[in-house]
Design a protein around this nucleic acid. Sequence first.
DNA 1: GCCGTTTTCGGCCCGACTGTTTTCAGTCG
Length: 585
Amino acid sequence: MKNKEIANLLYEIADFLEAEGSQFKPFAYRKAAFELKSSQKDVKETYEEEGLRGLEDIPGIGKSIAEKIEEYIKKGRIKEFERLKKKTPIKMKELVQIGGMGPKKAKLIYEKLGVSDVKSLEKAAKENKISKIEGFGEKSEKNILESIGFLKKSSGRFLTGEILEEVKEIEETLKKSKNFKRVALAGSLRRGKETVGDIDILAVSDNPGKAMDFFASLPGAVKVWSKGKTKSSLRMSRGFDVDLRIVPERSFGAALQYFTGSKEHNIALRKIAASKGFKLSEYGLFKKGKMVAGRTEEGIYRVLGMEWTDPEIRENQKEIGAAINDFENKKPGLPRLIEKRDIKGDLHCHSVWNGGRNDIWEMAESCIEMGYEFLGISDHTKFLKIEKGLDEKELEKQGWEIRKINEKIRKTGRHFRILQGAETNILKDGSIDIKNEALKKLDYAIAGIHSNFKMSKREMTERIIKAMKNRHINIISHPTGRLLQRREPYEIDFDKILRAAKIYNVALEINSFPERLDLDGGNVRRAKEAGVKMAINTDSHQKSHLKNISLGVSQAKRGWAEKKDIINAWSPEKMMEFFKKKHAL
DNA sequence: GCCGTTTTCGGCCCGACTGTTTTCAGTCG
């Protein structure tokens, strides 16, 4: 039982309570849920070790919620929740996902029309019944249908960042088992896509029967779709499916290549193979019926006269041509793509100063553990009141603290430094919510859009360009504003933004947060081709988020980014020069 | 329902936006 499971339950209770018109309880439940979700300690363990008292020690959790958690751990259900659901029998979690639809509106349309889930909501909207209800209108009805359409498009896929850890655990479990000789992840996960449909795992086993038994009894598996000697399929409790294929060792590379995809890359590769008299399949590379490669991926590409290709760029976007060796004509091959180990620090991290979970020192410690050379603290600034944004005075105070910690680190002789930045807000008119005199004192400054998302393309583009012109702004955070499966990017003329970024020496962020991944691979590629520099940041609000950097690196790789394109892969000195150059413009 | 450097009651984050209204409720971040 994961903290998140209980947290989600508390969130849903909060929604039901809000629908009932309860004023402050929802706030309390959401706070408790948030604390649970971000707590590093397992609630169930806490309860087993310390009982109710231990639960009440968690901030935001008092007697009543502690008892509800106890009830859930013991009985697997919460009476209060059952009571609320009985009173208003609707699929709350499903309905509030619809844009513009909150708990109260969900309850209202249930009472008026008997709408209890998204399906019946869609039907009612199509029959123009929604617009007849008081408080709704034609526009609401249109928005509801639009939002449902958007949701449908993205349904059935999961955010890679949300399931990655669990998938890695599965991989490790299989690897540790004696039943498996080799295990590898394939599919879109291996290609670093931001969302994945299902998980493909390949394995080699001397005893496929036993191996499949082991697989089917994995912790967290809730349903076995199928179980055979070569292929089995499971549904995990989080809702995603995992396919395991057992292949002969001599075909492992070929199978890995085949099941990694993409389909388009594979088709192109098979065409190359055919043109040279080979036949390529998931079983191997064959010439006149004789297997010539297949044990490793490298072997297959080599025999085809190609360089091994990073999975992230296997999209048939010119990587095939680039990978073909042509030494005679000194043709440039594939670029050496950026790797996680190239990253020297994180420039977008929040701290307790604006409501983050960890203080600056704790964040720094984690960065040191990761082998970084620097950490950029960039807390929100004052316009974002909900995030306790810092004003000019508080930024100055934070500067003192950072200098003190840097001094402490310097004395240990460690090669590590904390930089002070800020994630400022680009206001509606393109101005920055922090005065230039204060920005000047920072090591660098980020600017991002956090309000007024719905502007015309022209206005939004002008707004961002105006911010880039500010001589203290070095990075634009999450440049397109998209939230995966939740919000489309805001309207911008990206080519114009790229030109401005180049002229005003501003880096665009590759935000590594699982639901952002913004820029994405496609936009990274465009930025790179325009000669625009980028920064791969995590937007961490607590130290456990720092590991998301690998998601950002995957997007960067998907966009063919190299070390030279990523400012936080440079030496800190060179990066600081990039920032300084801006001030001189 | 939770919390306390305003400590057992009274406040809880709050301003902007949206779509609906004609002064506001609900949603959003």
